[in-house]
Amino acid sequence: INASIYDEIQQEMKRAKVSQALFAKVAATKSQGWLCELLRWKEDPSPENRTLWENLSMIRRFLSLPQPERDAIY
């Protein structure tokens, strides 16, 4: 996982035409506020920051699903 995940998140929300609230809920079981802060600060993903790493790993797993599967989840 690297910093490009933040751009991938924004691209996916645009592509699927979903809100931050919906993306946060389905991709990371988090709130819109959490995702907003995540995208604002764009912390460097590092395994040392375990909570951030685990949350980004969950999002990465969601983004790695085939597009039709992600669309069905939304």
Rank of each mutant, 00 (worst) to 15 (best):
A3G: 14
A3W: 13
A3P: 06
S4G: 13
S4M: 14
S4C: 08
S4A: 04
S4R: 08
S4T: 14
I5A: 02
I5W: 01
I5E: 00
D7W: 09
D7Y: 08
D7R: 12
D7G: 14
E8M: 09
E8A: 10
E8S: 04
E8V: 04
I9T: 00
I9A: 04
I9V: 07
Q10V: 12
Q10C: 08
Q10P: 03
Q10L: 09
Q10F: 02
Q10H: 15
Q11E: 07
Q11W: 05
Q11T: 12
E12R: 00
E12H: 02
E12V: 03
E12D: 02
M13G: 02
M13S: 03
K14S: 15
K14V: 14
K14G: 11
K14A: 15
K14W: 11
R15V: 00
R15A: 03
A16M: 04
A16W: 00
A16Q: 00
K17Y: 08
K17G: 14
V18A: 07
V18L: 07
S19A: 03
S19G: 12
S19D: 15
S19Q: 03
Q20H: 06
Q20P: 10
Q20K: 13
Q20C: 04
Q20N: 08
A21N: 09
A21P: 07
A21R: 10
A21F: 05
L22G: 05
L22P: 09
L22D: 15
L22W: 07
L22E: 11
F23C: 04
F23R: 00
A24H: 01
A24Y: 00
A24V: 03
K25T: 09
K25E: 11
V26L: 08
A27I: 04
A27C: 04
A27H: 02
A27Y: 02
A27M: 02
A27R: 02
A28I: 07
A28G: 06
T29D: 09
T29I: 08
T29L: 10
S31V: 01
Q32P: 11
G33F: 15
G33N: 13
G33A: 13
G33I: 13
W34H: 08
W34P: 01
L35R: 00
L35M: 07
L35Q: 00
L35W: 00
C36R: 13
C36V: 13
C36G: 15
E37T: 10
E37S: 05
E37A: 08
L38T: 09
L38Q: 05
L38C: 03
L39Q: 09
L39A: 01
L39W: 03
L39P: 01
R40V: 09
R40W: 08
R40E: 13
R40K: 14
R40L: 09
R40N: 10
W41F: 13
W41I: 13
W41K: 15
W41S: 13
K42E: 11
K42D: 06
D44G: 09
D44S: 15
D44W: 10
P45V: 13
P45A: 05
P45I: 06
P45T: 04
S46I: 14
S46K: 12
S46D: 10
S46E: 07
S46G: 08
P47K: 02
P47D: 11
P47E: 14
E48G: 13
E48F: 12
E48T: 13
N49Y: 05
R50P: 12
R50M: 09
R50A: 14
R50W: 12
T51I: 13
T51C: 06
T51F: 05
T51Q: 10
L52N: 08
L52E: 12
L52T: 02
W53Q: 07
W53E: 05
W53R: 08
W53P: 05
E54P: 03
E54V: 07
E54C: 05
E54T: 07
E54K: 10
N55A: 08
N55I: 11
N55L: 05
N55E: 15
N55V: 06
L56V: 05
L56F: 05
S57V: 13
I59G: 01
I59P: 06
I59V: 14
R60H: 15
R60P: 09
R60Q: 13
R60T: 06
R61M: 04
R61P: 04
R61L: 10
R61K: 15
R61T: 12
F62Y: 04
F62D: 02
L63P: 02
S64P: 03
S64N: 14
L65Q: 10
L65S: 09
P66A: 08
P66R: 08
P66W: 04
Q67R: 10
Q67Y: 04
Q67A: 09
Q67N: 04
Q67H: 12
Q67F: 07
P68Y: 10
P68L: 06
P68T: 09
E69G: 05
E69N: 08
E69K: 14
R70W: 02
R70P: 03
D71W: 05
D71G: 05
A72L: 11
A72S: 12
A72E: 15
A72T: 09
I73D: 04
I73Q: 14
I73E: 13
I73R: 12
I73W: 15
